[in-house]
């Protein structure tokens, strides 16, 4: 069975990209499953189920979803093998920009989107810096120049990754990603295999030493009040 970790900031298009990819792979007769790691609740479960993709949802609650991921992934792999999948995809929203679910010897995909701005690649931590493949979404709504600048910035931060644009709505470009998945290494078990990068014992940017106040600096498990 092939295992792939798909990480990226919230709403960068991870689920959309996986669904577009799955449509093509299912047509080819591959069987695949998804494990979704999230904080409190997730609509994604229903989106996968609607596409007839077996899915397991893991809610981390008060933990960082990526920490929660490591504690559960080995069992997840065994679930995938029992289910007879050819491919098991793990989707997780690395909420704190400092965690990364990427594992050595397992294909690591990071999804980022053009709308997040050209300064974003430099700000994302190991989940982008250690990825094998970086997928860039939402190119359909920005100019060619912005797409090129964004891709350039990604290559500067992670010069070794294959960088590919994919449209999460139409699936345009997902062919390249498909080719990468087909060449991914096989995974039988993960015991003893290492993470690509250590995780901090923190939940949000303030745990990580952030001192500035403001929405741009609040990353992670943040609750906002209603002042209306």
């Amino acid at each position: 069975m092939k295992l792939v970790t798909v990480a990226g900031p919230p709403s960068s298009g991870k689920t959309s990209v996986i669904l577009r990819l799955a449509e093509e792979l299912l047509k080819d007769g591959l069987s695949l499953g998804v494990i979704k790691f999230d904080c409190l609740s997730s609509e994604d479960e229903h989106r996968y189920a609607k596409a007839a993709i077996p899915v397991k949802l893991g809610l981390a609650g008060g933990l960082c979803p990526d920490h929660f991921f490591v504690a559960n992934i080995e069992e997840g792999v065994q679930w995938g093998r029992r289910s007879g999948f050819d491919l098991l995809i793990c989707e997780s929203a690395g909420l704190c920009n400092r965690c990364s679910p990427h594992i050595r010897e397992v294909l690591a995909v990071c999804v980022v989107d053009n709308l997040s701005g050209v300064h974003t690649p430099a700000k994302i931590g190991p989940m982008l810096k250690t990825a094998d493949v970086v997928v860039i979404t939402k190119g359909d709504v920005v100019s060619q120049a912005e797409r090129e600048v964004f891709a350039f910035r990604v290559k500067q931060v992670n010069p070794r990754a294959a960088v590919m644009p994919v449209n999460g709505l139409t699936g345009q470009g997902s062919l390249m990603l498909q080719r990468q998945l087909r060449n991914a290494p096989d995974t039988q078990a993960l015991e003893g295999v290492r993470l690509r990068f250590s995780m901090p014992a923190a939940l949000c940017s303030y745990c990580l030493g952030e001192t500035r106040i403001g929405p741009d600096c609040q990353i992670g498990n943040i609750k906002t009040m209603d002042f209306s």
């Binding site: 053009n114 709308l115 701005g117 050209v118 190119g139 359909d140 709504v141 920005v142 100019s143 060619q144 912005e146 090129e148 891709a151 294959a162 960088v163 590919m164 644009p165 390249m176 080719r179």
Partner: peptide, 20 residues
Amino acid sequence: WLGGEQRLVAQLSQNMNFVM
């Protein structure tokens, strides 16, 4: 061409805007 190393096409369409 297929590895995403070189971009073959540039695109223009009416949905595209500047967001910077």
